[in-house]
Design a protein around this nucleic acid. Sequence first.
DNA 1: TAGATTGTTAATCGATTAACAATC
DNA 2: TAGATTGTTAATCGATTAACAATC
Lengths: 213, 213
Amino acid sequence: MPVGAAKPAPLPSIRRLPLYLGYLKTLDPEQYVSCTQISDNLDVYPVQARKDIAITGVVGKPKVGYNVTALVDAIEHYLGWNRQTTAVLVGAGNLGSALLGYAPFNDCGFSVVAAVDADTDKVGQQIHACEVFGLDAIEDLIAERGISVGILTIPGQFAQAMADRLVAAGVRGLWNFTPTKISAPDPVVVESVQLASSLAVLTGRLQTAEPTD
Amino acid sequence: MPVGAAKPAPLPSIRRLPLYLGYLKTLDPEQYVSCTQISDNLDVYPVQARKDIAITGVVGKPKVGYNVTALVDAIEHYLGWNRQTTAVLVGAGNLGSALLGYAPFNDCGFSVVAAVDADTDKVGQQIHACEVFGLDAIEDLIAERGISVGILTIPGQFAQAMADRLVAAGVRGLWNFTPTKISAPDPVVVESVQLASSLAVLTGRLQTAEPTD
DNA sequence: TAGATTGTTAATCGATTAACAATC
DNA sequence: TAGATTGTTAATCGATTAACAATC
């Protein structure tokens, strides 16, 4: 490891940052907020909030807390939410179309600037003000619009091949909504949303929380 | 803790079960499969697969492995995916509509039998073969159709109040797609899908994986 | 000053991984 | 029998929680 290379932040901490952000946005930006206060409003211990916040590099004042604006800025800067991240959506089906119109992305600097789909009937259509292109257009779109993220909302069996194609075309990150595990060469970031895993937790617990048995 | 009460299974293990299921479905159901084989095809260590599988109660044969059919059955039984779980969707907006037509639910015994929405224009419509009712109908729908799960795809500020209402009406589980943290009284299961957390991991890592730092 | 809060170091807890005996 | 694999106990690792000194 190169000298001075910081230890990567724990994933659970990164996952909690948007939670803090949501709470902070309800506060007066000129005021100060303490971890005790955060703890009272969210379901975390004060120490945990303090450690999570520390990874953004912001420093607080003992007895006072953190300036709300400074804290919001630090978190957004750490997550890259203060600048635009552009994405291409691959697979404008059911789930894909929903993501095209997903309003909360606006607060994350995340914008889906183009969609592609194998279905030629969809090509040329506008879905939530986003134009749908054919699969052929992928490489040009990524190059010309400087797209850095590919969103995979296609059937699982095509996921890895499409991931490879997107990486070859220059994306630096993949957001995978398919049930398939995706791999990509080293600097490329892969993040997966596994709906089936979430459903498994829900129904699995329902089983054990059963009134009888 | 009551005598004989099993220690609850680790959440990460439960989350991995659908991954195994996906791979097992590609195999000949009459054959045997070993954890080595699973390990070669998925991104897990053999021991981890063995421990995960053990929570379902299935027993394997040394030197041989697990019968594929028996293993599939054990996992599906453990998750409750071999029987129907019925759900009502609250909020037939962008994301909600997508979930109504989400095909993979068919393999999980999960079916959304009704939707409700505050928008009276949507009431009476069919979305992906699912009828949309007014909010007034919630209690009757849950009681008459024996619905056990409520899916929250409404704006975050209404989430907790709606959760309380659904629990009062008799649901035993909540699947929360809002950015808000939901609480519910004890036997009720709450599982949340935090899209913002996933996006935070993606963009956060893109920041640190930056070509220049 | 006294006390609340930050930042950090140590202890605990849970999950992953390793080691190994039992088995077919 | 020999060897691959299961099932289980022990070691490691990382995240959470507790303890406490520093600070305004």
